[in-house]
């Protein structure tokens, strides 16, 4: 039987690129950031409003803990701004046609509305129990007056996006004990375009 060790010993090293990295223009320079780094640097969003960002971050954090700091909002925002066909969101496998932004934004508006109706405050101000309650209701399509794609479908899509940023990276995979074993390793470094060439 082959062991990880043996396999890793035979591993060839390939050119490093950035699977999750997203390019931002800052002061005329291209910055390559992972979603987590983009969040930490508070990079401006291209599509989502501040309210949409805080709604998405809070609900995703309740579904997949760790997704806020892993940069779920930066990841989704970046992908929504991509050319149709280039967006790397799992929704493209689920029958969503580009552009994906209206699907996400209508869903976030419906989630925001539900928080106001049930708790009289936005998601960012909900207690953990309150956000858990809303998430449970989304999962089972139990929210009345939901005016977007079915809540359970949005839940599924957001959960998948959040799993991408939390578990779909080298560090996320290794964090749960699954060796990543990349051929062409995705970078988790924050690189400027110039540094990357070096």
């Amino acid at each position: 039987m082959h062991t990880d060790k043996k396999i890793q010993a035979t591993r060839r090293s390939f050119l490093k690129t950035s699977a999750m990295a997203m390019t931002y223009m800052v002061a005329g320079k291209a910055l390559m950031l992972t979603p987590a780094a983009a969040r930490a640097a508070q990079m401006p969003m291209k599509i989502l409003s501040a309210l949409e960002v805080s709604t998405l971050e809070t609900l995703c954090e309740a579904i997949v803990p760790g997704s806020r700091s892993a940069g779920i909002a930066a990841f989704v925002d970046y992908q929504l701004a991509e050319k149709p066909g280039d967006a790397l969101l799992m929704g493209r496998y689920l029958g969503l046609e580009p552009p994906f932004a209206p699907f996400y934004q209508q869903g976030l508006a419906a989630a925001h509305q539900a928080a106001l109706e049930q708790f009289d405050r936005p998601w960012s101000q909900l207690t953990e129990t309150q956000s858990k309650s809303l998430i449970d209701q989304m999962f089972s399509d139990a929210i009345a007056n939901w005016s977007a794609a079915p809540a359970s479908f949005l839940f599924f899509v957001w959960r998948a996006d959040a799993c991408d940023v939390v578990y779909g990276t080298q560090s996320g995979s290794e964090g749960i004990g699954m060796p990543y074993m990349a051929h062409i390793a995705p970078s988790d470094k924050w690189l400027s375009a110039k540094e990357q060439q070096n």
Binding site: F14, L15, A19, M20, L88, L89, D164, A182, P186
Partner: peptide, 16 residues
């Protein structure tokens, strides 16, 4: 050399 080992970037290979 485009074939990055990532399930996320794998999606760029799909029908566009």
């Amino acid at each position: 050399s485009d074939l990055e080992s990532s399930q996320i970037s794998a999606r760029k290979l799909k029908w566009g």
